[in-house]
């Protein structure tokens, strides 16, 4: 289970962006989190990905409460959650070729030898050609770059996947293609998904259940999870 209990988080303790949010994703489940832009759902997504320490509240990952975040979180805990962000341009190190971008988590975790085979396999999955893999981010389109970012999120075979507005910048066909990649991955591995977005039609079609931001943060429905 990926559980968020009464999470309050933000960048300034006096004015938290997220107040008292609770949400649970079961293994193999796809949960859509629907909310208007600027409501704090991206911050909640970062908390769930162990990238941001909440001011209060608890995150429980696979039954164990999380006490440490970012670099301090044990490596196998943070790599259990894969993340894809909204803007591929900002999510890709501009100096890395797409191959290196996808292989980076393998290298960072000392699995360098597995990189070539795994990158080739994932490139096929997300639909990137060999030629595109040799390019740098500024030489490919947003859609192609987001495919690479999704491949990077999947490269360590995470048990949880968090897609924060993954398709907001993309056209309909690329959106459908990336959602299909995520769904195929989930079917084959049984991973859980938290898809954050503002497009109701998309999340309803994509996810097993869609929760609205207001119900996540209001105390009344906290028991609902």
């Amino acid at each position: 289970m990926l559980e968020l209990h009464a999470v309050t988080a933000g960048y300034d303790r006096r004015a938290p962006v997220v107040r008292d949010a609770s949400l649970t994703v079961a293994p193999g489940e796809a949960v859509g989190l629907l909310g208007p832009s600027g409501c704090g759902k991206s911050t909640l997504a970062r908390v769930a990905a162990l990238l941001h320490r909440p001011d209060s509240g608890t995150v429980v990952l696979d039954g164990t409460p999380v006490h440490r975040y970012r670099h301090r979180a044990p490596r196998d805990r943070r790599t259990a959650v894969g993340v894809v962000f909204q803007q591929p341009r900002l999510s890709a190190d501009p100096r890395l070729r797409l191959t290196d971008l996808i292989a980076e988590p393998l290298r960072a975790t000392g699995r360098r030898a597995a990189a070539p085979a795994r990158v080739a396999e994932l490139a096929q999955t997300v639909g990137l050609t060999a030629d595109l893999l040799t390019r740098r981010p500024h030489e490919v389109s947003d859609g192609q770059l987001q495919r690479a970012c999704l491949a990077r999120a999947l490269v360590l075979r995470p048990r949880w996947l968090i897609c924060d507005e993954m398709t907001a910048m993309l056209d309909a066909s690329t959106t459908a293609a990336l959602v299909r990649v995520v769904e195929d991955y989930r079917t084959s591995t049984g991973a859980g998904l938290l898809a954050v977005g503002h497009d109701r039609t998309l999340l309803n079609r994509w996810c097993d259940r869609t929760v609205h931001w207001d119900t996540v943060t209001s105390t009344a429905t906290k028991v609902l999870t």
Binding site: T79, V81, V83, S91, A108, V155
Partner: peptide, 14 residues
């Protein structure tokens, strides 16, 4: 930048 978040999430050390 999100790419640093992505690196942290990918298991990169400080």
């Amino acid at each position: 930048r999100p790419y640093i978040d992505a690196a942290v999430s990918g298991g990169a050390s400080r």
